[in-house]
Amino acid sequence: MNIEKSENTLVVVNYCRNCSKNLSPHAVFCNYCGGKIIKNRITVKNLLEDFNDRFLSIDGAFPKTFLALFRKPEDVIGGYINGVRKKYMSAFGYFALSLSIAGIYVFILREYFMDSIFESIAFPEEKNQAQLNFIKKFAASFNEYQALTSILSIPVLALISRIVFWNYKQFNYLEHTVIYLYAFSHINLTFYILAILTIWSPKLYYFFSFLGIIGYIIYLCYVLKRLYRLSFYKLIIKTSLFALVGSIFLIIITIIAVVIMAKMGMFDELIESIKAVNEAKN
C-alpha cells in the first residue's frame, strides 16, 4: 500500500492501529477488532462525530427513539433488553443526553432566571425574605447536584420496581434498571425541553413543573402497562403498591437528606431570620 502524507491525511498503513492485524486496501473497519480505520487528521467535525458515536449515537436514532418511547416504549426498552442495539439509542446514551439537556437548563435557570422565578412566589408578612432566601438556596443546591440525584434515582427506582413486580419473572434487577434509564430519561428530557422554552414566564414555568410531576407518574404507569401487558385492574394494584413502597423509600431518603442539610448548615439562615422576626414582635 502506498504511504501518503498531507496536512489533512494521516500516514496510510496496511495494518490496524488498534490490533495490528493486516487490512485489505479499501477497508473502512477492521475485520478482526471492528475498529474504524481513521485516515484523516483530527478536526472539530470528527471529534464531534467520535463523541456522538461513543456516547450519544444521536443522528437519526434520537428522533426515532424519542417518538417510539411515546408510541411503543416496549419496542425500545424491550428491544434493548432482548439485544437490539442499532435501531434506537442505547439506554446509557439516552440517559447521557437527558443529563446534557438538564445541564443546559440548570445553567440558563441559574444565570438568567433564578431571581425572576422565585421572586414571583408570595409569602406573608416579614418572613418572606427569609423563606425566599432559603428556597433559592435549596433550589441552587438541588440544581448543583441534579446530575448526581438523577444517577442515584435510577437504582432506587429499579429496586422499588423489582419489589413491586416480585411475582413477575420477566425482568431481573438490571433489566429494571434499563427500564428506568429510558423512562426516567424520557420524561426528564421532555420536561427540561419544555422548561427551557417556558422559563421566561414564571406562570408557564410553574404549570409545566407541576405537569412534569403528573406526567412522570402517568408515563411510568403507561410504560409498565405496555411492558408487562397489565390489565387496568392489575395496573391500579401495582401503581398503588409502587406508591406505598416508594413513599417508604421517600421518607427514608428525606430524613437522610434533612440530616445532611442540617449538618451543612443550610437551615441556619432560615432559623436565625425567623428568630429575629419573633424577637422583633415581642
Rank of each mutant, 00 (worst) to 15 (best):
L159Y: 02
L159H: 01
I160V: 15
I160C: 08
R162P: 02
R162F: 10
F165M: 05
W166D: 03
N167W: 00
N167S: 14
Y168E: 13
K169M: 02
K169H: 11
Q170M: 13
F171Q: 01
F171C: 09
N172P: 08
N172S: 08
H176R: 02
T177I: 14
I179C: 00
I179D: 02
L181W: 01
Y182M: 03
Y182T: 03
A183W: 00
A183H: 00
H186M: 07
I187K: 00
N188K: 05
L189D: 09
F191Q: 12
F191T: 09
Y192L: 02
Y192I: 04
I193A: 13
A195Q: 10
I196H: 00
L197W: 02
T198E: 09
T198S: 14
I199K: 02
W200M: 06
W200H: 13
W200N: 11
S201C: 04
P202D: 12
K203S: 15
L204H: 07
Y206R: 00
Y206L: 06
F207C: 11
S209N: 15
F210M: 14
L211S: 14
L211T: 05
G212W: 01
Y216M: 12
I217S: 07
I217K: 00
C221N: 14
C221E: 10
Y222S: 01
Y222W: 11
Y222R: 13
Y222V: 01
Y222N: 11
L224S: 05
K225H: 02
K225R: 10
R226G: 03
L227D: 03
L227N: 01
L227V: 08
L227R: 08
L230D: 09
S231C: 01
S231H: 06
F232Y: 12
Y233V: 11
Y233M: 05
K234Y: 11
K234Q: 14
L235G: 14
L235E: 12
L235N: 12
L235C: 08
I236V: 14
I236D: 07
I236K: 06
I236N: 03
I237C: 05
I237E: 13
K238E: 10
T239C: 09
T239W: 08
S240Y: 01
F242V: 08
V245Q: 07
V245K: 00
V245F: 12
G246H: 02
G246V: 10
